[in-house]
Design a protein around this nucleic acid. Sequence first.
DNA 1: GTTAGCACTCTCAAGTGATGAGTGCTAACT
DNA 2: AGTTAGCACTCATCACTTGAGAGTGCTAAC
Lengths: 343, 343
Amino acid sequence: MEMDERKKKILRAIVQDYIATAEPIGSRTIARKFDLGVSPATIRNEMADLEELGLIEQPHTSAGRIPSDSGYRYFVDCLMDPPRITDEEKQVIERETTKRISEIQEVIAHTSKLLSHLTSLTSIILGPHKGKSAFGQMHFLPYQPGQAIMVIIKENGVVDNHIVDIGDAITAEDLQHVANVFNNKMKGQSVDQVKKNLLHQIYGELARQRRLIDNAMELLSTILDEVEQPEKIYLGGTLNMLNQPEFKDLEKVKTLFKVFEEDERIKKLVQPTQEGLNVTIGGENTLKEFQDCSVISATYRVNGETIGAIGVLGPTRMDYSKVMAVVDYMTRSLTEILTRRRR
Amino acid sequence: MEMDERKKKILRAIVQDYIATAEPIGSRTIARKFDLGVSPATIRNEMADLEELGLIEQPHTSAGRIPSDSGYRYFVDCLMDPPRITDEEKQVIERETTKRISEIQEVIAHTSKLLSHLTSLTSIILGPHKGKSAFGQMHFLPYQPGQAIMVIIKENGVVDNHIVDIGDAITAEDLQHVANVFNNKMKGQSVDQVKKNLLHQIYGELARQRRLIDNAMELLSTILDEVEQPEKIYLGGTLNMLNQPEFKDLEKVKTLFKVFEEDERIKKLVQPTQEGLNVTIGGENTLKEFQDCSVISATYRVNGETIGAIGVLGPTRMDYSKVMAVVDYMTRSLTEILTRRRR
DNA sequence: GTTAGCACTCTCAAGTGATGAGTGCTAACT
DNA sequence: AGTTAGCACTCATCACTTGAGAGTGCTAAC
């Protein structure tokens, strides 16, 4: 069976109306609301075909039709108005993102809020992965008698600091010396490499500061091996889900919110499967709790390198065109902000 | 009218049963479940008295009685078994808190989880307030051509760092010089003071680095004025509320969770009004969304100084004895951990 | 190929009545 | 005087029925 023009029109009508009202729509209503020039009976026949094609379904005998997952998929791929951001949305985003915020976490948290606000759905942002970064520089700053602050700058520019106990016997010059040795030997190396290859060298050169070195190495391990610490997840507008009629059931809300607390599974949702905008509809995603939901996601970059993902979660019945436009624009916006910030 | 022994017994029975079942309890059931040696009719008479005293109430004519806020209050103050932590709870807490965690945020987050888990309610922890701290030291570290990392150490030992753009013309010595001037002039001063009194001096001494100074001052403002950044709030087990029968209504859930997102109002809930354990029952607290809820809270300390609060939020119908015991114990535990950690 | 007509199905909301829990009151009992 | 049995009354809840409305599929006519 072929998808002729009229079938397409009818499917589009069904999807659009269902997205707007969340009510199954019947042939009579379609004929009334959408000017297709045919009678309800004709539409009924077409709908029977569409159902056979698996694009729409009936919740029960005497209800109207609703789109199936495949129906949404077809709609998104072939029927939908192309995603186009409205001037109003654009303005809001511009206004909100030009506020100068320095901390990257805050930028992302703010983006998350904005995204959920614009879509009235739940936003999910995968924070930038810290990236296993190699050793860059080390410095010691005087702090208090017997203590110094060890500052470690990773190769990717992230700065970490820790207070370390030093003996009273160590002078500023000694510290400088230790730092110099580390900086020379370790530049660009991972901790494992250092432990294997260079530690005895360092010990050799700095025999007297053995305790300080051990201390420093331990700190370096924890700081540079921070990769295990997973990317942070930012959720925004989780409450918006409660306004969706598909979550008027308390049990559903419970399971939904339970999953919201499991970062690992949320992460899977926005994990991009391909470049550009990802649209995952209903059962296409693997989490059974979200079989009634769709996710629009995309990745954001810094200096061309993909470092995180941004997504919107909503009921399958969402305004794909609008949400896709917003996610797309926000991704670019975020990429731009982060890139500019880094310059 | 006096509260004689029998009235007390009956009130206690009503509260205990209602806490356990969440169902209004009638005279017959009381006579059956609790061995008071009198007939339902007598209990009815007593209950009429208790109602007149405002300690219990009837949801509707033919339902049993439930405790009123005053009833709970009387129960907590006079009737309840004294809070006593069980060995089992104690063990769990010991086990969980001996895991060595270094970051204070993590300690608190973990405590929050533990607390909500033990009580099956929602835990609220007010993070340690950062305290307005004055300028301590400043350092510049070389980073990339044209950029340096400015490290600011506050008087309380908190370290902050930011990448700053410096011109190509500035040498390491220049930077050192700038830092020295700042360190000399500003030690222990607040930013406002500096702006008022010292800025022109600094400009005078460092005429050539005017742009860098402006830059630095701006950063200092944001870093040192961080007080405005409020104490962080840790919520745990918010989902537990969904298991409470009083929140089977979706509308209630919505308003509840909305308030959960408003830190300012949550803060009010646990803000201690007196030393030791605070018990706020139902309408006693000021937030109208929480008129059906009670809060048990207490403050935790470091080195004798109160730095935050810890609390449990649940329906008015909660197991006061148990929750009070747990909150009390956890407070001590947290105080101890933080104090030990600081040594 | 399209449409009108019609019987049929199914949900939903409103109405009904039985049931049961619980009360307050009265009068009898100890 | 305090306690209890008995009883009429109230009210929520549940199961059941019923009617209305929406929608369908089928058939026959256009």
